[in-house]
Every structure is written in C-alpha cells, then in structure tokens.
C-alpha cells in the first residue's frame, strides 16, 4: 500500500480527511473558494443591480466552497457532518441551477458557477461535491473503524 493511502486506511485518525486523496480534493475546493469569492466580490461590488439573483447565487456558491474547504481541512466529527451537508447543498445547487439554466436560459443572463451544470468551469462544480461525498464516506468509514478499535482496547 502506498503511504498516500494512509489517510483512507482502516486506522485513519480524526484528521483523516486532509490526508491522501483528500489533500488534493481540499486543494481544488480551496481554488474554487478563492476564485468564486473573488469573482462574486467583484460582481457584487460593481454590477449588483444588473443581475442580483445570479450574483447572489455566485456569492452563495463561493461561501459553500469556502466552508467546505475549512470543514474538510479541519476534519473533526462535527466538521465532517458540516462538510457532508455542504456537499449535498452544492450537488443540489448545481443540478437545480444547471437544469433551470438549460430550460430557461433567460433566467440566468449572467453565468454563475453552477449554470449549465458548471460547464464554464469544466464541469468541476458538478464533479466536486460527488468526489467530496465519496471521500467523506471512504475516510469516514476509516475513522469509525479506528474509533471502534479504541473502544475494543
């Protein structure tokens, strides 16, 4: 087994989410948090009146990416729950906004990060919450196994 798979192994410690593949996942989340926050900051500051709903949605998405980054990097029991909820919200957001933007393009004259299922961002916004949930499940299973080990001892 490679040393990188340590985090997802059966004896993963509480901070397991930020090791192994999770480290790369958090890097992608951090990148999206940075870019989405910067982008929506500029949009809200300079052109909020033009398209308030898409711009507020962009800001909401940015907040989700930032929270997910922190929650995954912390990796405690409670932030694990928070990260799961955020990933589900993101998935719901990208599917709902993606569908609406496909059916009624005029609803989103200005593209948001979730328009067209994240097509403007290489569909990473669609992929990210799925990978997040898969990773939370894999690493979570490892952490629960470790907790049971401790109790058994």
């Amino acid at each position: 087994m490679s040393d990188g798979a340590r985090g997802a192994g059966p004896r993963a410690p509480a901070g397991a989410l930020r090791h192994g593949p999770g480290r790369a996942l958090i890097a992608v989340y951090a990148l999206f948090a940075l870019s989405a926050t910067a982008r929506s900051g500029v949009q809200l500051a300079t052109r909020f009146d033009e398209a308030p709903v898409p711009y507020l949605l962009s800001a909401f998405a940015a907040l989700m990416y930032a929270l997910a980054t922190v929650a995954l990097a912390r990796g405690s029991e409670s932030s694990r729950v928070l990260a799961t909820v955020i990933c589900l919200v993101e998935l719901l957001g990208v599917v709902v906004v993606g569908t609406i933007s496909m059916l009624t393009p005029e609803a989103f004259p200005e593209a948001t990060v979730w328009s067209g299922f994240g097509s403007g961002y290489g569909y990473v916004p669609l992929l990210l919450p799925v990978l997040g949930l898969v990773w939370l499940r894999m690493a979570g299973r490892g952490a629960r196994g470790a907790a049971q080990d401790r109790r058994a001892r």
Binding site: S2, D3, G4, G20, G22, A24, I26, A27, A30
Partner: peptide, 26 residues
Amino acid sequence: LLVLPIAAAWALAERSRWGNAVLLVG
C-alpha cells in the same frame, strides 16, 4: 501569485504522491 506558494505549503505538509496531486491542481 498566491496559488503556487499556498499549493506548495499544502503539498509539502504531506510528502506523498498526493503532494504531487495538490501541485498538479495548482
């Protein structure tokens, strides 16, 4: 300018293949 230094700091805290994955993202 922030991307590579942050990616490098985050990658070097774990000197495994996943450090390379982080730098790939950056």
